[in-house]
Design a protein around this nucleic acid. Structure first.
Lengths: 206, 206, 206, 206
DNA sequence: AATGAATGAGGTTTCATTCAT
DNA sequence: TATGAATGAAACCTCATTCAT
């Protein structure tokens, strides 16, 4: 990578990092583009070389932060050699929720900005610097198991959405209960969803 | 009520109604005070006679819309002569979700703006025009039953939050499943929460 | 007129006058809205209470300045008791060209901005503060004469356009000849146009 | 011409062509240098190797387009073996107006940008690729005739300016009349101008 | 209580120009 | 020559808020 190119990357990264910090600190509404560029140490025009407007960088950040959460969870599954798709899914959920529990700014940012569109983009785009799509890895996990599922995309979304929306209050406000107390109920619900997405394999019951 | 006083009320109501319509239509962010007063047909200065700023009317609206939902649900319980607190609670949840299902603008508005603070205010303030507090009615329902509960406030919040957050996607995106399919799971979860808030009455287990 | 209303009018007028001065001095392109409001001594926002953007005030000015030229010429016809439509038209042309000759800034401004659309608007709108339409007065002049003309609107436009476009260089650059030398040729051309618009009145001559 | 040199020429030409297209399509004001270089497929910096700014290329284009019009008209005079200076001049005018009639974008561009300065430059500079000056050819035509004229430069300008300014509306708006109807009047006016520039050769009247 | 013209800080966005590569 | 990322001044425009009426 040439000097010029790496310098370019550095500017873009500075914008990403600064924007994320300000969005989580002051909120997206109260963060101005002037704030971002000033703190990032680049000129105002530079912002517009990389992003259309504030919401563009916001969406890209939400998407990338979501990707990160998922990919790191996936790597943990592999590193801990968890086997069997349901167990792997439960493990990833725990992993993600744990990460969010320890970073409530991230939780707020991701929750408030995770619309269905952004979420889909996050799963189906190639991860920057990694050349892998989380979604491919996820399908691979299912294939490695013995059980087939319908609509693996919807299955995944349902589980994640259920988990994140119910845990938002548990983590931030300890309401209705602290996260720890809620977890067992969550995992039971996840099992329920998993069953409902199972493909009728030959013989047996649902 | 004098003519002048009713005229005053009319202005305030016009502001409330118009603001709600614009907030749900264009979003709170993109709605300006100019938009509101213009559409409401009052002068700009008038807005500031009733509200501090945009977020003031937003919060008051969220609170009042939430109150309405709850109070109407409560009235329905009485009209249908439902007996027994758990049954009454389930009935109210169904009633509220049904209302939200048929008014997704309201769902979005209430969900995006229902912070814990606003929620509390909604329950503990006197309802305009009615001179009743929903929360008193709610406590009364519990007392009429035979079972005592700890933290009736948290119990209520937990149930509502669980319901609204999980149903947000069901209603708006039919994800992970349409509302109808999700309802049985929801009601089972509510039963679980109810149990966990039961006060140790004499005999039984925790 | 109330104090408030007259004050309002004063601001708008200040904007008009300042804008005209800057447009004619620096050119429309190089005049910014900041320039205008600063020189006019009003706040930036005030500009947008009265005008959409720079081109809005430019068009309104071009239109109003054109109206003025025409109306003053018309008044001169009446004051000098000129009779007969052709003579009246020639007189007005002379009057207008004379005015432009002595105010080349106005000549430049009007010429560069007098598009067909703006021109039409100028003639058919009521004059501010006067409650008269120049165009009505013009039609009245024709009716008072004995000769009918087809398309009096086009007739008027043709004459004016011919005069202003050919005289632009005469006045500004003395090219191809100074205005004085050109005037006889111009009046001859105007007579030609007049003939070509005459309505065939029963019998007679061309 | 070397490959490198021809490549250089290609860039400059691309800039010229693109700029002309954009100027006539969107107007000079709304065309940015970014627009030009992007559409021309060259880098931004490259623009500044050839032109000082937007108005530089605008003027050069106006000049060169004017040159083209005149030179092509001159060639047509030669090809059609028109003899006698007045006839040659009328022929060239017709030729130019005809060209403009069929390319109203060009008409607008040339009219709006043909200031006296640019015009002079157009006539007195060597034509690119041709190594001839139109103005020399024009003087040659006069010399070949029997009649001498004062200020042949002003004569030429006067005729052209008269023609282009009066015909602008005829062509673009068919106002006051379509070009065809106006042409006879124009040619009579040109004859008048010609007379007024004649040098007193011995005997006759002015 | 009601008005709405005026404000002007503060945001967004553009774009001509430079300069290291 | 050619590039195009970076710049930042300078334009545009919005809108919450005030205040004289």
């Amino acid at each position: 990578m040439g000097k010029l190119e790496s310098n370019k990357k550095k500017k873009e990264d500075a914008l990403y990092n600064t924007a994320f910090e300000l969005f989580t600190t002051k909120g997206t509404n109260k963060t101005t583009i002037s704030d971002i560029v000033e703190k990032a140490g680049v000129a105002k025009g530079t912002f517009y070389l990389y992003f259309k407007d504030k919401y563009d960088i916001r969406n890209k950040l939400a998407s990338s932060k979501t990707q990160d959460l998922f990919f790191v969870a996936y790597l943990a599954v592999r590193q801990n050699q968890i086997t069997g798709f349901p167990a792997q899914l439960h493990f990833m959920i725990d992993h993600i929720l744990n990460a969010l529990k320890n970073d409530s700014q991230l939780l707020i940012f991701v929750s408030k900005n995770l619309s269905w569109n952004v979420f889909q983009a996050a799963l189906e785009q190639k991860m920057p610097d990694r050349d892998v799509r989380f979604y491919d890895k996820y399908l691979q996990l299912i294939e490695e198991g013995h059980q087939a599922y319908e609509h693996p995309d919807l299955l995944l979304f349902s589980v994640i959405e259920l988990a994140s929306s119910t845990c938002y209050n548990c983590i931030l406000y300890q309401q209705p209960v602290p996260l720890e107390e809620y977890m067992p109920y969550l995992h039971r619900a996840i099992d329920g969803i998993l069953s409902s997405y199972k493909k009728d394999s030959s013989v047996c019951s649902s």
